[in-house]
Nucleic acid binder design. Sequence first.
DNA 1: ATAATTCTGACCATGACAGTCGGGATTCTC
DNA 2: GAGAATCCCGACTGTCATGGTCAGAATTAT
Lengths: 150, 150
Amino acid sequence: MRVSSKAHYGLRMMTEFAKAYGAGPLSIAEVARVEHLPLAYLEQLASQLRRGGLVESTRGVHGGYALTRPADQISVLDVVTVIEGEVSPVECVAHGYVTGTCLREGECASRGLWMRLKQSIDAVLSQTTLAELVADQSLIDSMAPAEASR
Amino acid sequence: MRVSSKAHYGLRMMTEFAKAYGAGPLSIAEVARVEHLPLAYLEQLASQLRRGGLVESTRGVHGGYALTRPADQISVLDVVTVIEGEVSPVECVAHGYVTGTCLREGECASRGLWMRLKQSIDAVLSQTTLAELVADQSLIDSMAPAEASR
DNA sequence: ATAATTCTGACCATGACAGTCGGGATTCTC
DNA sequence: GAGAATCCCGACTGTCATGGTCAGAATTAT
């Protein structure tokens, strides 16, 4: 019951892309720098995000990545799904589940529980967008200077 | 973002114990039989559940395991927690988290998100008790014969 | 040309998961 | 007391996901 740090990294990268949205592509070298994450690893994640359609890339000298749509139209669920695959506590409540695969199907009492759980998780993750994360961060940053001056 | 089958097995075993509650201990051999789960593996899980205080054991010929409290006082969260440890999407929202461990603490915008997520998951899992799972199962069983007669 | 980028595939170390196995300790039943 | 049914425990194992690293190719601005 945890989010992989892979997905977490991906999300952090996406918030950086969100901040840079509209100002040309942002390189992962830059992301690695400000987020203190391993560059080679980010490369992989960025590729996944691109294949998932969340970002588009520009190669060459002033290249980098940019969101394919505004930050308020990309939810955390979108990001997590692209990186970790569908979030589903057990196989039998996944979207692509084929009826009959689970032998216990008929007599399974906990399926309802898992479905409620999945819905609950999906709800939280889909309600939060990258735009909100960025806004929260700005808020935090604006308070930070006072505290950081020790 | 998934529940291990280990925890799932544990839960299934617990519902069997719940059904047998009040009628003496239930052996894991019996559980393995009706749930079609590997006995040797269940032994390990049962030990964990005992160490976690959810069941108590009786050795010897008519031995087995029994819940330490009524099924309506044991939540799914209790079971999952004993087997998988605290359910927490990321380290920094875990119960025993030591402030300062995460370098980004101050400027982390997603922490609020993870806390909401954890709360949401905990809520779903703690609201469902073993008693309810058993009740659901009885309901299913009472409908099943008609359908099973094909 | 060269430097900055993305892109790709291969590689690797570690640990969790999902078991299996062997034998010991306890307790009921005969 | 012998045996059988149990729980108990530690060690072992194979497979897979995670969290990376690395080398080099392709692309593009300067």
